[in-house]
């Protein structure tokens, strides 16, 4: 029995092999990498300056010179879609940075602590969960003024409870587990127990949830932009671009379709990735 184990190769799955197993996730990951590259190298990749106006060629249809056409100010749509990845991704990352750590911590502390701590934290979570997120975000932006940081803050304020509930549900199951009991018996308590032992069990679901949420987040960000509450003009932003295109949608459909398509693709990428991550992050899934 003890001799067998040495001969067994440790099954460490190669990335390539994992990718082949889930083509949808691969596609999502590839699309996400593409978006990141576009955002990082926008100045080199964009065919034109996104804010350069050419009134004489306004609302030009897609052509060799302008692959996606031009908008109402004669700005190149391809360049603007490429530049538009920047505020979107930045906002998504900011929101995640606010919500996931905060939500997880609240949930884990509540789930592990039990008693009064749990009751207070979870009632607070329920209260925030009852708030209409986009409406609240609009109100906040209206008060604080439009901008990247304020937009992120507004969205984050209502996005964290989902992670708190998730983490609490997972932690409650763990609370009675033998391995946490064993850890306590080894003198592992408090922060070490929460982040070293509980977090690894909650993280995979949270990451999957985050990846699936990001699609919705992109829509919310675009929604803010569409209503003129996002990044102030003339910065290229997909939601604001769709709003502009909406005015001429029956005659020059491409003005709205270009950023709209970008939004759809970005959402799809994150959803596919979320599905794939769920499988990858489970070590028992060989």
């Amino acid at each position: 029995m003890t001799t067998e184990i040495v001969n067994l190769p440790v099954p460490r799955l190669v990335w390539r092999k994992r990718l082949r197993r889930s083509p949808a996730a691969t596609l999502g990951a590839a699309a996400l990498i593409l978006l990141l590259l576009l955002a990082a190298f926008a100045p080199w990749l964009a065919p034109y300056d996104p804010n350069l106006q050419h009134i004489e060629i306004r609302l030009a249809p897609p052509s060799h010179a302008h692959w996606l056409g031009t908008d109402g100010f004669g700005r190149d749509l391809a360049a603007r879609v490429i530049y538009g990845t920047r505020p979107t991704l930045l906002l998504v990352s900011l929101v995640l940075l606010f919500t996931v750590p905060f939500g997880l911590t609240v949930g884990m502390v509540a789930g592990l602590g039990g008693g009064w701590a749990e009751r207070i934290l979870m009632r607070l979570t329920d209260m925030v969960l009852a708030l209409p997120s986009l409406v609240l975000a609009l109100a906040m932006v209206a008060v604080l003024g439009p901008g990247l940081f304020n937009g992120a803050l507004a969205l984050a304020l209502t996005a964290w409870p989902a992670y708190a509930r998730l983490a609490r549900a997972e932690t409650q199951l763990l609370r009675r587990s033998d391995y946490l009991a064993a850890a306590r018996m080894h003198g592992i308590y408090g922060v070490r127990l929460v982040f070293g032992h509980v977090l690894p069990m909650c993280l995979p679901t949270a990451v999957v949830r985050a990846a699936l949420d990001m699609g919705g987040m992109i829509l919310a960000i675009a929604g803010l932009g569409f209503l003129g509450m996002g990044v102030p003009p003339p910065t290229a932003e997909w939601g604001a671009m769709v709003a502009e295109g909406g005015k001429v949608i029956f005659d020059q459909w491409w003005v709205a379709a270009a950023p709209g398509g970008a939004i759809v693709l970005a959402c799809l990428a994150f959803n596919l990735l979320g599905d794939g991550l769920r499988d990858w992050l489970d070590p028992r899934h060989d």
């Binding site: 587990s177 064993a182 032992h197």
Partner: peptide, 10 residues
């Protein structure tokens, strides 16, 4: 249960 007393991700 030796399966339950070891942390599955460590």
């Amino acid at each position: 249960d030796p399966y339950a007393s070891l942390h599955p991700r460590h």
